[in-house]
């Protein structure tokens, strides 16, 4: 099935086998978790099969605390979106458009990107400590602020990648023919940035929804979906958590596939294969990583 190109015969075969094993390693645990969600057993297992059931999915919808968690997660997600996207855009404009000296540009860039490279719990801790001085205790607000510290950096990377492809002469031309600053922004910049704004919003929201490490420190006594899952695992794990995982994975896979299809269509349309492939896009943006070279 896998014809190894450019690899010598037996080496290629070993590599193919390795790849099969690797994907088995990647998907095996997820499949096991999914199966356990349908097992009619009081605790999640696949080794003691008690028969198929859907009751764990029913239990999911009856769990009130879970719905409170989801509601809080949604609120935080919207808050992060509203904070992170404008911050990320402002920073991207500053970094790509303002003629700063190399040193100050690197300094600003380094500071803004540092939360991405720092362990998430540290962001939660520093937020918690800082706001205590103003009498604000752990809760939804602090979780929102803590998450924004690094999610805004992802947005910034997205906007920077987009802005670097922007033809500045368009703005110059518009200004020369007498357009106002507002008009230039609304008629030229904004339409150009629209895809990036949409992507950033989705990215910020998803990142916020699935964040655990930063949230767990900044949230105080409140609960989000992820906190709820972790609490469920620790205190009396039932296959209900597996059912929840199956639902979340299904949503995730659907989103990933939809985005990937969208991206491929976009690529075909613009034909900018190489450039787009190297940009920070949602492929990595589920959890975007920093790109080398």
């Amino acid at each position: 099935m896998i014809r190894a190109r450019g690899a010598d015969g037996w080496m290629g075969r070993i590599l193919s086998i390795y790849l099969v094993l690797f994907f088995f390693y990647m998907f095996g645990p997820l499949i096991i978790m999914t199966l356990a969600a349908f097992n009619d057993s009081p605790y999640p297992t696949v080794t003691q099969w008690q028969g198929w059931t859907l009751r764990w999915f029913a239990a999911l919808f009856a769990d009130r605390e879970l719905w409170v968690g989801i509601q809080n997660s949604l609120l935080i997600g919207i808050g992060v979106m509203l904070l992170a996207v404008p911050c990320g855009l402002a920073a991207a404009l500053l970094l790509t458009r303002m003629r700063l000296s190399r040193t100050s540009r690197n300094l600003v860039y380094g500071i803004l990107v540092s939360p991405v490279l720092a362990p998430g719990i540290l962001l939660g801790i520093s937020t918690l400590i800082f706001w205590q001085n103003f009498g604000v205790g752990g809760g939804l607000l602090l979780a929102t602020i803590g998450q924004t510290s690094f999610i805004a950096a992802y947005c910034m990377l997205l906007f920077t990648a987009r802005l670097q492809r922007f033809d500045v002469t368009l703005e110059e031309a518009a200004l020369d023919v007498g357009a106002s600053h507002t008009q230039v922004f609304r008629r030229i910049m904004l339409p150009f940035l629209r895809p990036a704004i949409l992507t950033s919003c989705v990215l910020a929201f998803l990142q916020s929804m699935e964040n655990y490490n930063t949230t767990v420190f900044a949230i105080g006594g409140e609960r989000t979906l992820m906190i709820e899952i972790a609490a469920n695992v620790r205190h009396g794990l039932t296959p209900m958590v597996n059912a929840l995982a199956v639902v979340l994975i299904a949503v995730t896979v659907a989103l990933a596939l939809a985005y990937e299809l969208h991206r491929r269509m976009e690529l075909r349309r613009t034909g900018r294969r190489a450039a787009a492939a190297r940009a920070v896009d949602l492929r990595l943006a589920g959890k975007p990583t920093l790109q080398p070279t």
Partner: peptide, 26 residues
């Protein structure tokens, strides 16, 4: 694409998947 799908699955859930493998009667 096959890599992106598990990459998108939350860290908490990916960890949870191993609980059923590594637990005492896993």
């Amino acid at each position: 694409l096959a890599l992106i799908v598990p990459y998108w699955v939350n860290e908490l859930l990916r960890t949870l998947a191993w609980l059923m493998i590594l637990s005492e009667n896993g």
